[in-house]
Amino acid sequence: MATKESLTEAIAVAGSPASGGIEKKKFSPLLWIAENGVIVFTIALILFAVIFVNGFASLPNITDVFYRAAPIGIVAVGMTFVVISANYLDLSVVAQVATAAVIMIGISNEYGLLAGFAVATLVAMLYGIVNGVAVGFFKANAVIVTLSTTFIGLGVLRWLSGGSIFFGPEDGPIRAFGQASLGPVPASALLLIVITVILWFVLNRTTFGFAVRAYGSNKEATRLAGVNTTLVVIGAFVITALAAMIGGFALAAFSNTAVSSMSDGYEFRALAAIIIGGTSVFGGKGSVLRTLLGVIFVSVLTNILVLSGIGFGFQQMAIGALIVVAVSVDALARRAAKK
């Protein structure tokens, strides 16, 4: 693989000016909202919650928000790679998280924690490689590919686990991790921060990360620059899968149980967090730090809805609407910026 500097040059030469890879910044309020609005929205939402929502500004509730945000957050920062590489999203994270959780608890109960981690890692690699090869090598549509791997994965999981709930031992290491905390911040939230920092480094400071961003903004130019684009796509899906595996661990540790339906809706929540964070579904632009902010936004919003006694159906409508509105703002901003 070429070095980063030569890659920049090659892509600058090969890329058309309209590709959005390297362009002059012109101030547009809509674009600013699409990219940085999440900071304002998150602060506004938290202020709103503190003032108007009963029970939000209490230590147990804040800890609860952290607990619920951590697994989704880990999944979302990983999936940011797939979104930046202009492959829409990885729907199969919903199956990956549940599979990892069931494997961690189920296999760790029988053969110990290390075996659980080893099997979960292998399965995650398998997910990443199958999705990555189908999308990167066969150039198949990522939504359809990951839709089918979701059904395959959940089918296998339900079949093998019989849909039963797995309980971890009360004195096991997973339970210990789930209960550990630093003041009001649970260990899983710290894990989220560690993962975010690692993935920030991979995305912003390595040639691979640069190739992912370059591929997202201009696939053809990146290929012409001599990058093995198939490997870039596989890499993006493998990182997503590994993050989903760790997210599954955090989720299993939270309740010390695992069941095949435990991650329902994760793919949509993670996508909402990524898009509201300002990572563009058109690819090329975005960062894991933005996704972290998006996760805080989505988690606080969900918490407000739950505290206000708003049902599961309305929560789904809110998340779905959030995805559509956030993408709309991004699309309109980009069109306005091009004019």
Binding site: L89, V143, L271, Q316, A321, V324, V327, R335
Partner: peptide
């Protein structure tokens, strides 16, 4: 002007709700 993959994915979730 949103990509239909993402627009209808959002609708999939919202309408399920």
């Amino acid at each position: 002007g949103i990509n239909s993959f993402i627009a209808t994915l959002g609708m999939l979730f919202a309408l399920r709700g």
